[in-house]
Amino acid sequence: MIDWARVAELRAEVGEDAFGEVLDLFLEEMADAMARLSADPDPARLRDDLHFVRGAALNLGLKEFCSLCQSMEHGAMTGAEIDLSPLFACYRDAQRILLAGQPAGADIA
């Protein structure tokens, strides 16, 4: 679900203190975006909104979430009706795991 190697890479790039700030900013931006998608998923902006959350999540290694976003982006481009509930569930799971930290024995190579 999470690319722990990407998390470690980002943590090394920005430093431990700044990583906490990056994570807080990510969570804040994602909370806003997910609330907007949940409350008022504008079909005209759906592709752009999905693209935004996918890009933000990609930086933190949320690979399953990113894959789901990409599939939904493609569907939105073709005008397909998009059920966002799997996206919300996947984000909640990824957020919980990310906040819990790297699991013991995780392969980060």
Score class of each variant (00 low, 15 high):
66 C>W: 05
76 A>Y: 11
62 L>I: 09
26 F>P: 00
63 K>Y: 06
89 A>R: 11
48 D>N: 09
82 I>S: 07
98 L>E: 05
4 W>T: 02
16 E>S: 14
102 Q>G: 00
94 A>Y: 03
25 L>Y: 01
43 P>A: 11
81 E>D: 13
99 L>P: 07
43 P>L: 09
71 S>E: 14
75 G>Y: 04
95 Q>A: 11
76 A>R: 08
58 L>R: 15
65 F>M: 09
6 R>M: 11
11 R>I: 02
90 C>E: 12
81 E>Y: 04
86 P>K: 04
20 G>L: 07
104 A>S: 14
89 A>G: 15
14 V>K: 03
96 R>C: 08
6 R>S: 15
18 A>V: 15
25 L>T: 15
76 A>T: 05
107 D>T: 05
57 A>P: 04
78 T>E: 15
75 G>Q: 14
102 Q>E: 14
64 E>N: 12
3 D>Q: 06
58 L>Y: 06
60 L>E: 00
38 S>N: 10
49 D>A: 11
8 A>S: 14
56 A>D: 02
99 L>G: 14
98 L>N: 05
8 A>Y: 01
82 I>D: 13
85 S>P: 07
82 I>A: 07
96 R>K: 13
41 P>T: 08
89 A>S: 13
76 A>K: 09
33 A>P: 06
93 D>I: 09
102 Q>M: 08
25 L>N: 03
6 R>L: 11
79 G>P: 10
78 T>M: 10
53 V>N: 03
40 D>Q: 11
13 E>I: 06
105 G>K: 00
102 Q>P: 08
24 D>C: 01
53 V>T: 12
67 S>L: 13
20 G>Y: 02
51 H>A: 06
71 S>G: 15
28 E>Y: 00
70 Q>N: 14
6 R>P: 10
84 L>V: 03
66 C>G: 13
64 E>F: 10
38 S>K: 10
104 A>Y: 07
15 G>V: 07
15 G>F: 05
26 F>Y: 12
42 D>G: 10
68 L>A: 11
1 M>V: 04
107 D>V: 09
97 I>V: 15
62 L>R: 03
60 L>W: 01
93 D>N: 11
62 L>D: 03
43 P>E: 06
74 H>T: 12
53 V>Q: 02
101 G>E: 09
17 D>V: 08
27 L>K: 06
10 L>P: 03
21 E>I: 12
19 F>A: 06
60 L>Y: 00
87 L>E: 01
33 A>G: 12
31 A>S: 12
13 E>Q: 14
84 L>S: 07
46 L>C: 04
65 F>E: 03
37 L>N: 02
32 D>E: 11
32 D>C: 01
102 Q>I: 06
59 N>T: 11
8 A>G: 05
1 M>S: 11
55 G>H: 05
2 I>K: 07
57 A>C: 12
101 G>W: 08
59 N>C: 04
96 R>N: 09
67 S>F: 07
15 G>I: 05
27 L>S: 04
97 I>H: 07
101 G>H: 09
38 S>Y: 03
39 A>M: 13
1 M>Q: 08
9 E>W: 06
16 E>Y: 10
33 A>M: 08
33 A>W: 02
64 E>S: 13
105 G>D: 02
30 M>A: 10
97 I>K: 09
99 L>V: 09
